Amino acid sequence: MPLPIVIADDSLLARKVLTRALPEDWNVDISYATNGREALELYRAGRASVMFLDLTMPDMTGYQVLDALQHEDLNTFVIVVSADVQPMAQERVRALGAIAFLPKPVTPEALRPVLKEYGLHG
């Protein structure tokens, strides 16, 4: 059974780059969100065992999504993918429950160890 994942980013190019960085043999069902509100809706619909989350999006930011997930006690693996690589941003997303922070553009080499560490991909 495919693992449901959400890629949440307002940039079509960023969504494509991240999709290409996923392991080719990873059995997943990908849903896309262009803002944080859509990402939460997809999660609530059971579409996000793993969520790749940009921080800067319209309507609802990645920080707001992480906050909502935490306050509603929602359980998903969140990997933040952002161009904002400042240490403060990285500390903040980890405090809000993200399992990893990857800088844009994501590469397969950067993604693979994170997935392996959490048992999401061999």
Rank of each mutant, 00 (worst) to 15 (best):
1 M>K: 10
2 P>D: 09
3 L>G: 01
5 I>H: 07
9 D>L: 09
9 D>I: 08
12 L>Y: 14
12 L>W: 11
12 L>I: 03
14 A>W: 03
15 R>D: 10
16 K>W: 07
18 L>I: 01
18 L>Y: 03
19 T>D: 07
19 T>H: 05
20 R>N: 05
20 R>D: 09
22 L>G: 01
23 P>T: 01
24 E>A: 08
24 E>T: 05
25 D>Y: 01
26 W>Y: 09
27 N>S: 11
28 V>W: 03
28 V>L: 09
28 V>H: 02
29 D>C: 07
29 D>V: 14
30 I>G: 01
30 I>H: 07
31 S>K: 13
31 S>D: 12
32 Y>L: 14
33 A>H: 02
35 N>G: 00
36 G>K: 03
36 G>H: 05
36 G>V: 01
37 R>F: 02
39 A>N: 07
40 L>E: 00
41 E>K: 08
44 R>T: 13
44 R>W: 10
45 A>Y: 15
47 R>V: 06
50 V>C: 14
51 M>A: 04
51 M>V: 04
51 M>I: 06
52 F>P: 05
54 D>F: 10
54 D>H: 08
55 L>C: 04
56 T>L: 15
57 M>E: 02
58 P>A: 09
59 D>E: 11
60 M>G: 06
62 G>E: 05
62 G>F: 11
62 G>T: 09
64 Q>H: 00
66 L>N: 12
67 D>L: 07
68 A>R: 14
68 A>W: 14
69 L>W: 08
70 Q>S: 13
72 E>G: 12
72 E>K: 08
73 D>Q: 11
73 D>C: 05
74 L>C: 07
75 N>R: 15
76 T>F: 11
77 F>T: 09
79 I>P: 00
79 I>W: 00
81 V>C: 13
81 V>I: 11
82 S>W: 02
82 S>M: 00
82 S>E: 03
83 A>W: 03
86 Q>T: 10
86 Q>Y: 05
90 Q>D: 03
90 Q>L: 03
91 E>A: 15
92 R>C: 03
93 V>A: 06
95 A>Q: 15
95 A>G: 15
96 L>A: 08
96 L>Q: 14
97 G>D: 05
98 A>R: 07
99 I>Q: 01
99 I>C: 13
101 F>H: 11
101 F>D: 00
101 F>T: 00
101 F>L: 04
103 P>K: 02
104 K>R: 08
104 K>F: 05
105 P>C: 09
106 V>D: 05
106 V>M: 13
107 T>V: 11
108 P>G: 10
109 E>R: 10
111 L>C: 12
111 L>V: 10
113 P>N: 02
113 P>G: 07
113 P>H: 00
113 P>D: 09
114 V>S: 02
114 V>I: 15
116 K>C: 03
117 E>V: 04
118 Y>N: 02
118 Y>V: 02
120 L>P: 06
120 L>D: 11
121 H>M: 06
